[in-house]
């Protein structure tokens, strides 16, 4: 399968990675090469095979319903690029 620059541009938007036209032009053939190589997986007959769910037999442990965290806003905001009045601040969102 061949991926065109429009698809690469769409993916860059979906992934929220800004890319110049030149970057997209450069990435498209690389993308095609990697995907072309990956495509060999299609050869494998996997009918009747369940997709792997857990690599090592193990079951999901559940936690008790106890409050053990929170109440520590300074720790949560410590690394924020912009924090004001106890909130994280971002450019205004118009909904």
């Amino acid at each position: 399968m061949s991926v065109d620059t429009d698809t690469v541009r769409k993916i860059s938007r979906l992934a929220r990675i800004q890319m110049s036209d030149a970057e997209i032009e450069a990435l498209a053939p690389e993308f095609n090469k990697i995907l072309g190589w990956i495509d060999q997986l299609g050869e494998v007959d996997t009918s009747g095979v369940e997709p792997m769910a857990a690599v090592v037999p193990n079951t999901l442990r559940l936690r008790d319903d106890v409050v053990t965290e929170g109440g520590d806003r300074d720790r949560v905001l410590a690394n924020a690029p912009q924090a004001e009045h106890g909130f994280f601040a971002v450019p205004k969102v118009i909904e």
Binding site: L41, G42, V44, T46, V49, E50
Partner: peptide, 12 residues
Amino acid sequence: AYYTQAQRVRAL
């Protein structure tokens, strides 16, 4: 075609 197939191959 990609992810599910890869996880099946992983099982194999």
